[in-house]
Amino acid sequence: MIAKHCLFLGMARKVFKSRKDALFTVVMWGTVLTMLFVLAAELNRIRQPGNGVEVLGLIILGFVIGLMFWLWFDTRYSIDEAFVYFRSGPIRGKIRVTAIREVVIGETMWSGLRPALARRGVVVKYKRYDEIYFSPDSNEAFVSALLEVNPEITVATKAAYR
């Protein structure tokens, strides 16, 4: 019974890590280091007599630092015979590959849903008006994996990317 089930799995899931470029590295780590400095200064201030503890502020600061680490170390995408799965910290989802109508390689989307850590990634247009931005470690391999599942996807390349 297990062997029969394995025959129906089709293509193996292909996993792509998110590429991390210099801009996002500086922004992410600069923010984390600044928050760690503030956290250390606040903890040092608490040790001094007569200073109250701002527990809520420390909890929020710790939560935001943890969230940024989670985003940095857990942003990736995978493609199987039916879906593109994405995860970036607590942001997770899937898109049916047959719903994808177009991908634009080398574009950067600055607003909207963008579980990504780099510029010049891939904008995936699906359904009628929906878009999402990914930054896989290889744009070409990612798009190739999509085309294996759905060869009817239109592929465009931004001129500056070429």
Score class of each variant (00 low, 15 high):
P49R: 02
L23T: 09
E54I: 08
F24R: 07
R47E: 07
G57P: 01
F16Q: 14
M68R: 03
V32N: 08
F69C: 03
I59H: 06
I79N: 11
R76H: 14
I65E: 02
E42W: 00
W72G: 04
S88P: 06
M68H: 04
N51T: 01
P90I: 12
W29P: 12
G62A: 10
Q48W: 01
V38D: 02
G57F: 12
T31Q: 13
I59Y: 07
I46A: 02
V84E: 14
A40P: 02
F63G: 01
R45M: 13
L43Q: 00
A22K: 07
A22E: 04
G89K: 00
S88T: 07
A41V: 09
V53C: 09
G66I: 05
V38A: 13
R47S: 08
P49I: 04
F69I: 00
F16A: 14
S78A: 15
T34E: 05
L67D: 01
G66F: 09
A41S: 10
W29S: 11
V32K: 08
L43V: 12
P90R: 06
Y85E: 06
I65C: 03
L58C: 06
V27H: 07
V27I: 15
G89R: 00
S78W: 11
L56Y: 05
L61N: 13
E81M: 11
P49K: 04
L58F: 00
V27M: 15
G52V: 04
V53T: 12
F16M: 14
T75V: 09
L56H: 00
V27K: 05
R47V: 03
L33E: 10
F73M: 01
V32W: 09
V27L: 15
F37T: 13
A41D: 07
R19L: 10
G89M: 08
F24E: 06
M68S: 10
F73V: 00
P90T: 02
F86T: 05
F86G: 13
L58G: 00
G62D: 02
T34D: 03
G66R: 04
T31H: 12
G50F: 10
V26Y: 13
F63M: 05
L33K: 07
G89I: 05
L61Q: 10
K20R: 14
L56W: 10
F63D: 00
V53R: 10
V55I: 12
F63L: 11
G66D: 05
G62Q: 01
I60G: 03
G89S: 08
F73K: 00
L58W: 00
V38N: 00
E81P: 04
S18G: 13
L43M: 13
M68N: 11
R45C: 07
L33I: 15
E42F: 05
G57Q: 06
I46P: 00
D21W: 04
A82M: 04
R19W: 04
L56D: 00
F69P: 01
L71I: 15
I60D: 02
M28N: 15
